[in-house]
C-alpha cells in the first residue's frame, strides 16, 4: 500500500518515567497478578477461619516481636526506597548507587527477619489448616521479598558498571515502585498473621 509521510517522530525522547514507560505498565501488570494472589490467600485464610470455630487451632498465637520488627523495617525502608527513586529521576548516579546499596542491605535484613518469623509462628505447616495458612501467607510474601531483593542487588551491580546510565534510571524507578507494592502487600498480611489469632 502506498504511504505518505505525515508525522516526524525523531524528536521524541528515548525513555520516560512512570506511566510513560512500557516497563512501568508491565510491572503494574505483575503487581495486579500478585496482588490478586495475595487477595485470594487472605480470602481463603478467612474462609478457613470461618469454618473452624477456633483460630488459632491448637496453638499459641505467633510471637509478636519478629513480625512487628519486620513491619517497622519495611515501613522505614520506604524512605530509602523513595530516596533511590528520587536520585534516579534526577539522573544522580552517586546518589542512585548509594541508595541502591542501602536498599540491598535493608532487603537482606528483611529476609533474615522473615526466617526468624517462621521460627516464631508457634505452629508447623502440617499441624492443621491454621498452620498451613500461616506458612502460606508468610511464604507467599517471602517469595516477593527474595525476588525484589535479588532484582535490587542485580540493578545495584549494574549501576556500578558502564551500563549504569540512560534507561537504567527508569529501571531503578520501576524497581522502587515494585518494592512499595511488596511493603503495601505486607500490611494486611501482618494483621492477618499476627493480630487475627489474638482477636
Amino acid at each position: 500500500m502506498k504511504t505518505r509521510l505525515a508525522v516526524d517522530l525523531s524528536g521524541l525522547p528515548p525513555f520516560g518515567f512512570d506511566n510513560r514507560s512500557p516497563i512501568w505498565w508491565g510491572t503494574l501488570g505483575f503487581v495486579a497478578i500478585e496482588g490478586m494472589g495475595f487477595v485470594l490467600a487472605v480470602g481463603l485464610t478467612l474462609y478457613l477461619k470461618h469454618v473452624n470455630p477456633h483460630w488459632p487451632m491448637d496453638a499459641a498465637p505467633p510471637d509478636l516481636l519478629p513480625g512487628t520488627l519486620l513491619t517497622g523495617v519495611l515501613l522505614a525502608s520506604l524512605w530509602f526506597n523513595r530516596s533511590a527513586d528520587k536520585a534516579a529521576r534526577d539522573g544522580d548516579l552517586s546518589g542512585t548507587r548509594l541508595w541502591l546499596v542501602v536498599m540491598t542491605v535493608v532487603g537482606l535484613a528483611t529476609i533474615g527477619l522473615r526466617l526468624w518469623e517462621f521460627n516464631a509462628l508457634n505452629v508447623r505447616w502440617d499441624q492443621n489448616a491454621y498452620g498451613s495458612c500461616q506458612w502460606l501467607l508468610l511464604g507467599l510474601h517471602a517469595t516477593h521479598l527474595i525476588t525484589d531483593v535479588g532484582d535490587t542487588a542485580v540493578l545495584t551491580a549494574l549501576m556500578f558498571t558502564k551500563h549504569g546510565r540512560g534507561k537504567r534510571y527508569s529501571d531503578v524507578s520501576d524497581n522502587a515502585f515494585y518494592w512499595s507494592f511488596v511493603v503495601a502487600a505486607w500490611i494486611p498480611i501482618y494483621g492477618l498473621v499476627y493480630w487475627v489469632p489474638r482477636w
Binding site: Y47, L48, V51, N128, A129, G131, S132, W135, L136
Partner: peptide, 15 residues
C-alpha cells in the same frame, strides 16, 4: 502434608 483440603485437620474440600 499441609492440611488445606483435609477435613480432619480443619481444611475444607469445598475450598
Amino acid at each position: 502434608s499441609t492440611q488445606f483440603f483435609n477435613h480432619e485437620a480443619g481444611g475444607d474440600q469445598l475450598l
